[in-house]
Design a protein around this nucleic acid. Structure first.
Lengths: 232, 232
DNA sequence: ATAAGAATATGTTTTATAACACAAATATAA
DNA sequence: TTATATTTGTGTTATAAAACATATTCTTAT
């Protein structure tokens, strides 16, 4: 993918954030941003590093995750095109507390945060856009704390499957998840060991709630998944 | 406490947020805010309600918490004077996802969020203040997810004690925590049952890491607590 | 002052989930 | 292709933490 891809997104207001900007502001971004390609499983940035860019995912799928005790990772957020990330740590004036990596081959635009800050300082609507974005993320993070700490394994995995559907949607058959992730990632998303993710997934298959073909997951009974996610 | 208390905070720049405002803006807030007193354990607002005010804690101690499965609560954040809260849900344009309650008799100022939004729209530095505040909270929330899901009971309780110290500090003896909370709250802060909070606390007493006298907790070996919090 | 209720403390049992072990299937590289 | 590594699957064991039970101490109200 070449630079024109992001230019299109920006100039045609394909994402809420850009519709806020004046033409002059849009051009400042178009002049400044750089396109980066990442391979499957490649790290975009790592915990502890100094934040520099606002990343815009143009194509592919990205995970934000954090390494915990004994190298176990927790996936904190899933990114889809066209979404933005990487700005929180810069705003907080601290190093990254989590890492970002590509699930699959992905194309991203990088806008220097200095420029973003400059735009924010001069465009109040952009500031308000980020206030809303951060507020929504914070609410989601607080909710996640309770979900991950209080639900049992089945509830957490059911929830993860719903999250995957909400983020990446279904294939044309209206039931196959449009993301093909390793069992380990599924485990890291729902705070359990890989063995338990596999085992619990098999359980769902036996109960005819889903079917599984390698990394291809078809959801047969979404209502039941939501029920399990809610009650256990 | 009477209204002049918050006037003092505002006009004398006792909190970072107000130093950003012009005198005219400060007066708009002083004219608009209301003082509310809450008794020990009284709810300030509850999950599901529509957000209306920016709350400013002037005196006392406040907890933000969220009810989970089976009525178990998770304490998400501790508030001390002079800190602000209650604005996230308004910015996100959604109902509260968590509740706020007073640990002890507390005095709060309530500023209508409409006014805050109006000030933000006209004062970019205030917008940037909230961006930074939200960003820091989001980082903390993400870190908390990993701490609460991956650490074992001892680590979580040790961490909670450090958090209490960081938030409310020590008494004049430089070792007694300046907050006296029920074991149940301690449990809700560190994601465990009340029994296990009591048991683990006793363990720390036996190991001469702390002493306990009712709700009075003295920390004898802070370094050891940090070590336990980090490694196990 | 006494009773009733709440909070704290501690021992025992049960259970959910991690840890471990190993086999089979699949992907990757030489 | 064959070899090697990685991922997936499943059974078994170990263990951390919840659940339960009961006693004791501390509060609060009458």
């Amino acid at each position: 993918m070449i630079k024109s891809a992001l230019e299109k997104v920006i100039s045609e207001d394909l994402a809420e954030i850009w519709s806020i900007l004046t033409n002059e502001e849009k051009h400042r971004i178009i002049d400044a941003f750089e396109i980066h390609n990442f391979k499957k499983n490649q790290i975009i940035y790592a915990e502890g590093e100094a934040p520099e860019y606002l990343w815009c995912l143009l194509k592919g799928k990205v995970k934000k995750f954090k390494e915990g005790v004994g190298g176990r990772a927790q996936i904190l957020r899933l990114i889809r095109p066209v979404q933005y990330f990487g700005y929180r740590a810069y705003f907080a004036q601290e190093p990254y507390v989590s890492s970002a990596g590509a699930f699959e081959a992905s194309t991203l635009g990088a806008v220097p945060m200095e420029l973003v800050m400059d735009l924010i300082r001069n465009n109040n609507n952009l500031a308000i856009f980020f206030i809303k974005e951060l507020s929504r993320n914070l609410g989601g993070s607080d909710t996640k704390i309770v979900n991950l700490t209080q639900k049992h394994i089945r509830g957490r995995l059911a929830e993860a499957l719903i999250v995957l559907k909400d983020n990446y949607g279904y294939e044309d058959d209206n039931s196959t998840l449009k993301i093909y992730m390793a069992r380990e990632d599924l485990a890291n998303l729902s705070n359990m060991t890989t063995s338990n993710a596999i085992r619990t997934l098999s359980g769902f298959v036996n109960e005819k709630i889903i079917t599984v073909d390698g990394r291809r997951i078809r959801i047969l009974n979404e209502a039941m998944l939501k029920k399990i996610s809610k009650f256990g």
